[in-house]
């Protein structure tokens, strides 16, 4: 089964990490990711830009309304996600516990994936919008 692991955390807290602290967390996460990748269980991984870079299209009106900012004004925001392959929910939680040890605070939402289209994109993260 493929699972999405949605990473939620308080943005003001993550934003208060120093560069060194941020790097340290990313390095610890990379260790877990490496292990998953070697086991052939790691799908796409994304860290999202701050919610200030987000735009939301509300499609419950016609024409849809374009709003600045993230969809929800919650205390903990969606800051990134993983796709991982796990035999069971128990196995998925085991993996997520490892990620949590590397990056405590906030929450991971584990959600089974119903439809998955593998990526055809090269890595262009952070590349300029045209």
């Amino acid at each position: 089964m493929l699972y999405a692991v949605l990473c939620y955390h308080r943005e003001d807290v993550v934003g208060a990490w120093s560069k060194a602290e941020d790097d340290a967390v990313m390095a610890k996460l990379a260790v877990v990711q490496d292990r998953l990748a070697k086991a052939g269980r790691l799908g796409p991984v994304a860290r999202l830009m701050p919610t200030t870079a987000a735009t939301t299209l509300r499609k419950d009106s016609d024409p849809p309304l374009v709003l600045d900012g993230p969809f929800a004004e919650t205390k903990e925001q969606l800051l990134g996600f993983y796709v991982i392959e796990c035999a069971s929910l128990e196995a998925a939680l085991e993996t997520v516990r490892e990620l949590a040890r590397a990056n405590p605070g906030g929450a991971y939402e584990v959600r089974p994936i119903a439809v998955f289209h593998p990526s055809h994109l090269p890595d262009r993260a952070g590349v300029a919008p045209e």
Binding site: R10, V13, V14, G15, A16, E21, P104
Partner: peptide
């Protein structure tokens, strides 16, 4: 990040609002 660093980040993050 150890406990203390996490708390410091949380305090810094919450500071303006508090």
């Amino acid at each position: 990040m150890n406990d203390l660093a996490w708390i410091e980040a949380a305090l810094t993050g919450a500071r303006p609002q508090a």
